[in-house]
Structures are given as structure tokens and as C-alpha cells.
Design a protein around this nucleic acid. Structure first.
Lengths: 272, 272
DNA sequence: CTATGTGAAAAGCTTCACAGCT
DNA sequence: AGCTGTGAAGCTTTTCACATAG
């Protein structure tokens, strides 16, 4: 039985855990009381997961703006460029602390710095890619992954013909060596791009190698020990979600239903 | 303030996920109001987006079970296989209607049918892939995409050397022809796998070609007219979210804070 | 007068727990 | 007995709207 603790009141301190879009780690746990509300390092724990995903987007937009010479932005400008509304943007940024100037806006460089620090981008996160097929190739050739900060330091496959062959400048190792190689090279993020049947066993080896986070492209629900963070990217799911929207729309039209956006009051419920 | 409830059941360990879009249609808000209740066609409109994503996962798990000869499943079995808890699973399935049998469980085949219908998988959704680089190649070679139902019917790139070259059995067309070709072939889903700078213009052409949904792999916030559904897959964002969790964890340790867990399993890969 | 930062209200999701079929 | 289906409770996230700082 776990004595769940929870809540406090009035204050902004709450913790959360959730995922942005689709789905997330099957593991997981709960709260873990957090007191205090001043230390910026601690603050990070309470940022809603959904906000974290957006911070990454803001960061990219801000970087682009900085490259174009912008030195300040208003919440309005930034939110538009990031595709969200300004209230949400301000709320998100407020999780970092108060780094804007009322009546003026935010200093681009300062904001970039704070977001990077919050997202842990001041550290390097070495990446390993497992499964050097079409997708794995693409990922390996990403050459240093998004921006910098995520250097690909190991590649693995099971195909004997690939072992030792350099892809994107890095030789491919055998998946049996995952635990050893990952531990040696201090890999912290493992990317799984294998066929579905291999995914779980590869995942287990990555975990054995000390990998803390996994980005899973295989359409499989991975089983991981708690404290290993998993994010999945599932093409089939994405397409099916789109399919759902097409169908929904089509049905609506077929039924001659008009989505009137005025204020719909109490839609009469039709008989059960 | 009322006291908090006491719980009683032992717990379920699963964390959740959830979360609506991390980004998405920048346009207006959701209509919603729909009073469902009876018509299954109408019901679809009211299914939470988060549930839709999970339905796709259930579908995959169910298909696998069916292949292994299973004819019925309980919410417990299915939920475990899908990595969610049973209450959530039952709630999700209830959006489809009542297709289980109390005291028994769900008929696999029946459930597969209902989910497919709900997700609009009884229709075909023709797909176009734009940007035949590493990733585009991988996608094009997926050969008919996830399962069936999403045939790739057009490929586009801007590189003259690629035009006309068959990739995965389909010749590449020039991006200038996107509107015409998409309209001709009845493409409903466009996949953007181009470099960031090209994404928006490609998107505009897809929309001009009548494409209703876009799956965007380019790290760019797309601007689309309302009623065009966009989903994005952003590698950089995914990695940065993982980075955030690593950082959060590290900070916690650095501060001597112990995230006391109720039940901790074995594999404590402690990373110094 | 302008644009941030934020309680507070609203909306959305998930979990609980149990009535109701089989 | 067993398991689904679901109102209601509990949380989280989003949106409002306004006091406040510059």
C-alpha cells in the first residue's frame, strides 16, 4: 500500500507527469512531495509535461529569431510563431520564473538560456541507435541529431553484414554488445528503430547498459523498469488518428450536420 | 475542506500519459458540444483525442491476439498488454458503445471491427510523401505503410536527379506538381519529410491539392487553414523532453532529495 | 499605456468504486 | 462469482481577465 501524499494548497507547487501527445511510459509512479517554491532547480520538477514539450518548440522559434537579430519578443509574437495562444505561452514561461519585462516583453537571449537550462540542454546526452534499417540509417545520418547536444555515439544491428560497417562515420556494433558498449560510452538515450519483435529484447539490453531514456519507433508497448523514461513515436498511430478525423468530418457532413460555432445552449438530447 | 479519500484498492502502477496535443491545429477551438448517447456515428465526435490515440494501440494489440487465436479478452488482459490500466481501457471502449459481455469480456473480432470503423479504417486513405531524403526513403519503402489502408500513392522531391526515379516502386514527381498529382490521385494524407525551410510551401501545395491531413516531420510550425488536420512528429522535441527528465532526476539527486518510491523493483542501474 | 505574471474559473482526462448483466 | 459500463470524484491543463510593474 502506498501512502500517497498529496497536495498542498494554495501554492503553485504541484507536480505532474503526463505526456504530450500519444502515450508514454508504462512504468511510473506518483507524486513525491515537493516543498518549496523558490529554488529554480527545484522548480523544474513541477513543470507540466505538456508545457515541457512546448518549451522545446519555443526554444526553436527563439533560436531562429535570435539568428535573425531579434533581441526581444512579446508573448504575442512568440506565441503566434509557436502556434499557441499568448496566455498559454506566458503561463508556460512563468514556470521558469519571471524573466520578462512588463510593458516590453522577453529578452530573446535570456529566455533561450533559461529554457536550455530547464530542459537540461547544458549537458550532453549521448545517443545510441539500434536497428540500422531504413529508419535507423536516416537517424544515424542525422549527424549529431537535432542541433547539438545529442551526439550519436553508438550504432547497433543484428545483421552480420552490417557489423563494422561505418554509417554516418560510426561503425555498427552487434546488438549483443549493447550493454557493454553503452556502459563504456556513457550512452544515456537509446533509440529503438528495430522491427517490432526485437524491440523488447533490445530495450532490455539498453537498460542493462545503463540507458535512462528510450525513444521507441517500434510499434510495441515496451516494458521497462520504473525510472527509465520511454517516449514512443508511432507512425501507425499517427496515421490512424488522422484517419479518425477524416472519418469524423465525413460523417458529420454525410448527416447534414452543421457545426455551428455560435454558442450552443442546451442541445436537446435526443431520445435514448 | 474535505478529507481526501482513502483509497482502498492496492494500486495500479501505471502512470499516465495523456495529453491532448502538444501542438496542433493553430486555428480555432474545438467545437464539441455533442450530446451523444445513441447514434454511433455521432458518438465518434465526442471521443477524447487522448482516447483515440489509445484505441489505435488497442487495435494493434487485439490484432496480434486474434492472430494467435484468441477469441475473447478481458479488460484486464487487454489493458495490461496495451500498457494502461483497466479502468481507462474500459472507459475508452465505452466511447464506442457497449460491446463487451459482462462477466465474460470482449469478443476480439467484434472489438477489432468497431475500433476500425471508429477510426475510419474501413476507408482507404491514400498517402503522399514529400521529401525523398533519408527519412522519406524510409517512409516510402514502408511499402504500403502501417498494415494496409494507407497506400502510398505519390512521392515528391525537388531534386532533378530524383524525378522519375522509382522508389519503392513509385516514381518521384516534382514538388511543383503536388497540387495536380494529389488532386488526380485523391490523396488525403500528406507526409512532409523535407528540410525545414521547404515545409511550409510544401504544406501549402498539399492543401491546394485537396489534402485534408498532414503528418509533419519537419521541425516547423505549419500554418494551415482550419479543417486541415496536422500532426507533427518532432525528433528534437522528443529528445529534449527526455533530456528534461534526465536533468530533473539529476537535480533531485544532487540536492540530496530522495524520490522515495513505494515499491521499487530491482534493476537499479545507478548512474554516478 | 503596454505587456507580463497569475489567481481563479473552466475544460478535459483519469481514476474510483459499484450497480447491473451474464 | 465475475466483469463490464459508468456516474462521480480527483487531478491536470487551458483559458480568463486583471492587478501590477515598467
Amino acid at each position: 500500500m502506498v501512502a500517497q501524499r498529496g497536495r498542498r494548497n494554495g501554492a503553485k507547487r504541484t507536480r505532474s507527469e503526463a505526456a504530450p501527445d500519444a502515450d508514454n511510459a508504462p512504468t511510473a509512479e506518483m507524486p513525491a512531495v515537493t516543498e518549496n517554491g523558490t529554488d529554480p532547480e527545484i522548480r523544474a520538477r513541477s513543470i507540466p509535461e505538456a508545457a515541457v514539450a512546448r518549451l522545446a518548440v519555443y526554444l526553436r522559434v527563439l533560436s531562429a529569431m535570435a539568428d535573425q537579430g531579434a533581441t526581444t519578443v512579446s508573448s504575442e509574437e512568440l506565441s503566434t510563431a509557436a502556434g499557441v495562444n499568448s496566455a498559454k505561452l506566458r503561463k508556460d514561461l512563468s514556470y521558469l520564473g519571471s524573466y520578462g519585462t512588463r510593458g516590453v516583453g522577453y529578452d530573446v537571449a535570456v529566455l533561450v538560456g533559461h529554457i536550455e537550462r530547464t530542459l537540461g540542454l547544458t549537458r550532453q546526452h549521448r545517443v545510441a541507435v539500434v536497428g540500422i534499417g531504413n529508419l535507423g540509417h536516416a537517424l544515424a545520418n542525422y549527424g549529431g541529431f537535432p542541433g547539438r547536444g545529442f551526439p550519436v555515439e553508438a550504432l547497433f544491428d543484428i545483421d552480420p553484414d552490417l557489423i563494422g560497417v561505418p554509417v554516418g562515420g560510426l561503425p555498427v556494433s552487434h546488438i549483443d554488445d549493447i550493454p557493454v558498449v553503452c556502459a563504456e560510452r556513457g550512452i544515456s538515450i537509446g533509440v529503438i528503430a528495430t522491427p517490432p519483435p526485437a524491440a523488447q529484447s533490445v530495450c532490455d539490453r539498453l537498460v542493462a547498459g545503463g540507458v535512462q531514456c528510450i525513444l521507441n519507433f517500434a510499434p510495441v508497448v515496451l516494458q521497462v523498469p520504473e525510472h527509465v523514461e520511454v517516449r514512443k513515436v508511432d507512425l501507425a498511430v499517427e496515421l490512424q488518428i488522422l484517419s479518425f478525423h477524416v472519418a469524423r468530418r465525413a460523417d458529420g457532413e454525410a448527416n447534414g450536420r452543421v457545426i455551428d460555432e455560435g454558442s450552443v445552449a442546451g442541445n436537446g438530447v435526443v431520445v435514448p
